[in-house]
Measured scan of single mutants.
Amino acid sequence: MAAGGDHGSPDSYRSPLASRYASPEMCFVFSDRYKFRTWRQLWLWLAEAEQTLGLPITDEQIQEMKSNLENIDFKMAAEEEKRLRHDVMAHVHTFGHCCPKAAGIIHLGATSCYVGDNTDLIILRNALDLLLPKLARVISRLADFAKERASLPTLGFTHFQPAQLTTVGKRCCLWIQDLCMDLQNLKRVRDDLRFRGVKGTTGTQASFLQLFEGDDHKVEQLDKMVTEKAGFKRAFIITGQTYTRKVDIEVLSVLASLGASVHKICTDIRLLANLKEMEEPFEKQQIGSSAMPYKRNPMRSERCCSLARHLMTLVMDPLQTASVQWFERTLDDSANRRICLAEAFLTADTILNTLQNISEGLVVYPKVIERRIRQELPFMATENIIMAMVKAGGSRQDCHEKIRVLSQQAASVVKQEGGDNDLIERIQVDAYFSPIHSQLDHLLDPSSFTGRASQQVQRFLEEEVYPLLKPYESVMKVKAELCL
């Protein structure tokens, strides 16, 4: 049975990233139509530049190519590739079939990587351009969430054990800070992308030097003109047959890092959902379990974690691919890159769409948070109580021993009897502590235990987050809708 299948058929496997999760716009960027249309555009740009620099290419040939950029006979191309065992030459023939007058000058002087690699770089750039505003929107939604809850005390956790208090907004800023680093890295790697350009079979530009009869300047002009037509500021000066596969490492490393950030955020949300302090959106008709109707599973956060793990592992592909590119190139890269580049971007696209949807509907339960604080705060307040007693004339050592005994009794009630923490009640009825009984409410005010959390939130948002989001103001209103 021949390899390949009808990918629109229910009898043929289709990647869930495309069929179930990723956005239509990201799927289109990695589609065959987008790819092969870009090949034709690159052939047109090459012909236009070659004509401008004096090669015998007519206006009629150029116009014929322009008129057929979208006229792609995919069936013919597939048949040609089956016959020739070469995808680029299959599309040269297919393009030439609908451009008979231009057929002889299509791909003039070029090698397969002229269309293959340059198209990949265009796709990487455009895919990054799709991700950047999506990530900015996630940051914006979380920034709104953090600002609104900047002063809401909550129990902090280290080692997932109760620690000092923080605020809900401050905790959210930990998430935002990681995503801001990801946004900066995505922008950097996007701006650092260079075009492969017009380089020939081993990167020496020998074929173009021959076409222009040894004119170095025209060869350099050709490279520059096509690079500018493709919208790049610069091209690699040095290439082998391909652009260095280190570029793929750079791009997928940034995406993998984004995956790590999203995994951490969504894990926190899942843990908070278990504590009943916070939940992701839950639709009115949504079913959490087929057997347990009360369940409210954090399905979206779980999906993000599941896909983020996949995204983090994909960076190993370009690392290994770059390491086995012998001399000017081997074909070890080809099949692998067809999979890992598309999957990385479709996965990143999915987790950003999902995280935006989550961040637009996060639900906080202040009463649950308050109750958990009441359970733990008495123990945390013991040092403040000791200091207040010393100020009232008591002995630190005597007070410490009193607190120690009462704390152990209260802990026994919590752990052995399943009761509430009654340390404060014990202190309130103990005559030894009568000098500070009137101060206990103040000493137990949760806001006095959150330090500068709310001020940190305000400063972080104003100095770091809002300036970073400013270039994306025009796209901030787009909502994230999930079908599944």
Rank of each mutant, 00 (worst) to 15 (best):
G4H: 11
G4S: 10
D6F: 00
H7D: 08
P10W: 14
S12T: 13
Y13W: 08
S19Q: 13
R20G: 07
S23C: 15
E25V: 12
S31N: 00
F36E: 10
T38Q: 10
T38G: 14
W39T: 11
L42F: 14
E48Q: 07
L53H: 05
G54V: 03
G54L: 10
I57Q: 10
I57T: 06
E60Y: 14
E60G: 08
Q63I: 04
E64A: 04
N68W: 10
E70V: 13
E70S: 13
I72H: 09
F74A: 00
A78M: 11
E81M: 00
R85I: 01
H86S: 04
A90W: 12
G96I: 15
I106D: 01
G109Y: 05
A110D: 02
D117Y: 11
D117S: 07
D120M: 09
D120R: 04
I123C: 03
N126R: 01
L130A: 00
L131I: 05
L131F: 06
L132A: 09
L132M: 04
S140L: 09
S140D: 11
D144Q: 15
F145G: 04
E148G: 03
L155K: 03
F157Q: 00
F157M: 01
T158Q: 01
T166R: 10
C172F: 00
I176W: 03
Q177G: 01
D178P: 00
L179F: 13
M181Y: 03
M181E: 05
L183A: 06
Q184Y: 11
L186C: 04
K187W: 03
R188C: 15
R188Q: 09
D192G: 11
F195M: 10
R196K: 05
T202M: 11
F208R: 08
K218A: 02
V219T: 12
Q221H: 11
K229E: 07
A230T: 12
F232Q: 07
F232W: 04
F236V: 10
G240V: 07
T244A: 13
R245W: 06
V247N: 00
L252T: 15
V254R: 13
S257Y: 09
L258T: 08
I265E: 06
C266A: 04
T267F: 04
T267D: 00
T267L: 08
D268L: 07
R270I: 04
L271Q: 01
L271K: 02
L272V: 12
E277D: 06
E280T: 11
E280R: 08
K284S: 00
S289F: 00
R296E: 11
M299E: 10
E302M: 15
E302R: 15
C304R: 07
L307G: 11
L307K: 05
L307T: 15
L311A: 14
T313R: 06
M316Q: 06
L319R: 12
F327T: 09
L331T: 15
L331A: 15
D332G: 12
R338A: 01
C340S: 14
F345V: 10
A348H: 01
A348L: 05
I351A: 10
L352W: 05
N353V: 05
T354R: 07
L355R: 00
S359R: 15
E360R: 01
L362T: 15
L362I: 11
P366R: 07
P366W: 10
V368A: 02
I369W: 07
E370L: 07
Q375Y: 13
E376V: 13
M380W: 07
E383Q: 00
E383S: 11
M387R: 07
V390G: 09
Q397W: 01
H400C: 02
K402Q: 12
L406A: 04
L406E: 10
S407H: 11
S412K: 04
Q416K: 08
E417Q: 10
G419F: 15
N421E: 05
N421H: 00
I424A: 05
D430M: 14
F433R: 11
P435W: 07
P435N: 04
I436F: 06
D441C: 00
H442I: 08
T450Y: 01
Q455C: 00
Q456N: 12
Q456C: 10
Q458P: 14
P467E: 09
P467L: 10
L468A: 05
